Computed example of a mutant assay.
Amino acid sequence: MATEATEIEITTIGRRTGEGHSHPVWFIREGKSTFLLPVGGRGSQWFRNLRNNPTIKLGATSAKAKLITDQAKVGQVMDEFSSKYGAADVQRYYPGVDVAVEVRDS
């Protein structure tokens, strides 16, 4: 996955339906990890799906998601998002974000 890309397609498993739900999301890469921020924080539907079933598909690759609630790490991810996408856009699209998601390469 090219780090210059601005979005990646994620698919999570619906906690009620058991069906896949796909969404384009912004991301950052750090080493062997991809980090995501749910726009609605812990209330985001796709984050809630991951709490129920941590299987996530990034593009064509399936992996297990690690849910991040540590505010220091969430802040670091927000800082990296701001560097990549611009602080004004990150503040506009991610107000009150309190969680992040890490997906490690296999």
Score class of each variant (00 low, 15 high):
residue 45 Q to I: 04
residue 88 A to M: 14
residue 63 A to N: 09
residue 27 F to L: 08
residue 99 V to A: 12
residue 15 R to I: 02
residue 38 P to Q: 10
residue 1 M to A: 15
residue 6 T to E: 12
residue 34 T to W: 03
residue 59 G to Y: 02
residue 9 E to P: 06
residue 44 S to H: 02
residue 44 S to F: 01
residue 36 L to N: 04
residue 17 T to S: 15
residue 35 F to M: 00
residue 26 W to H: 01
residue 32 K to T: 06
residue 76 Q to D: 12
residue 88 A to P: 04
residue 95 P to E: 01
residue 85 Y to R: 04
residue 9 E to S: 15
residue 102 E to D: 08
residue 77 V to A: 01
residue 15 R to W: 03
residue 103 V to I: 14
residue 71 Q to N: 05
residue 33 S to V: 01
residue 1 M to H: 13
residue 69 T to E: 15
residue 89 D to Y: 12
residue 46 W to Y: 14
residue 90 V to N: 06
residue 63 A to T: 05
residue 57 K to H: 07
residue 36 L to R: 11
residue 29 R to C: 10
residue 56 I to D: 09
residue 37 L to Y: 08
residue 12 T to E: 10
residue 101 V to A: 00
residue 57 K to C: 03
residue 23 H to E: 11
residue 73 K to A: 05
residue 66 K to G: 11
residue 26 W to A: 01
residue 23 H to I: 13
residue 28 I to L: 05
residue 25 V to G: 11
residue 25 V to F: 13
residue 69 T to L: 04
residue 95 P to A: 04
residue 61 T to N: 03
residue 29 R to F: 05
residue 1 M to D: 15
residue 86 G to H: 04
residue 32 K to V: 01
residue 11 T to A: 14
residue 22 S to L: 06
residue 99 V to G: 04
residue 100 A to L: 00
residue 91 Q to R: 11
residue 93 Y to D: 12
residue 71 Q to G: 02
residue 105 D to S: 10
residue 40 G to S: 12
residue 99 V to C: 09
residue 97 V to R: 12
residue 18 G to M: 11
residue 37 L to F: 10
residue 51 R to L: 14
residue 106 S to T: 05
residue 47 F to A: 03
residue 101 V to P: 00
residue 87 A to D: 04
residue 25 V to R: 11
residue 53 N to S: 11
residue 89 D to S: 12
residue 13 I to G: 09
residue 1 M to Y: 14
residue 63 A to I: 03
residue 33 S to N: 15
residue 22 S to V: 02
residue 76 Q to E: 13
residue 56 I to S: 06
residue 71 Q to Y: 01
residue 57 K to S: 12
residue 82 S to F: 07
residue 36 L to M: 05
residue 93 Y to I: 08
residue 1 M to R: 14
residue 62 S to M: 11
residue 50 L to H: 10
residue 3 T to M: 13
residue 86 G to W: 10
residue 44 S to A: 15
residue 100 A to W: 00
residue 20 G to V: 04
residue 5 A to Q: 15
residue 93 Y to S: 12
residue 47 F to E: 04
residue 76 Q to F: 10
residue 3 T to F: 13
residue 67 L to C: 03
residue 67 L to W: 02
residue 30 E to R: 15
residue 39 V to K: 12
residue 16 R to L: 15
residue 14 G to C: 13
residue 5 A to N: 14
residue 66 K to N: 11
residue 54 P to W: 06
residue 2 A to G: 11
residue 46 W to N: 10
residue 93 Y to N: 15
residue 100 A to D: 00
residue 51 R to E: 15
residue 85 Y to Q: 06
residue 72 A to C: 01
residue 12 T to G: 07
residue 71 Q to C: 00
residue 26 W to L: 01
residue 93 Y to T: 07
residue 102 E to I: 00
residue 85 Y to S: 08
residue 50 L to W: 12
residue 67 L to K: 01
residue 58 L to N: 02
residue 60 A to M: 08
residue 90 V to I: 15
residue 69 T to P: 05
residue 95 P to L: 04
residue 72 A to H: 05
residue 37 L to K: 01
residue 23 H to A: 14
residue 57 K to F: 09
residue 2 A to T: 07
residue 38 P to H: 03
residue 84 K to T: 10
residue 74 V to L: 05
residue 87 A to W: 03
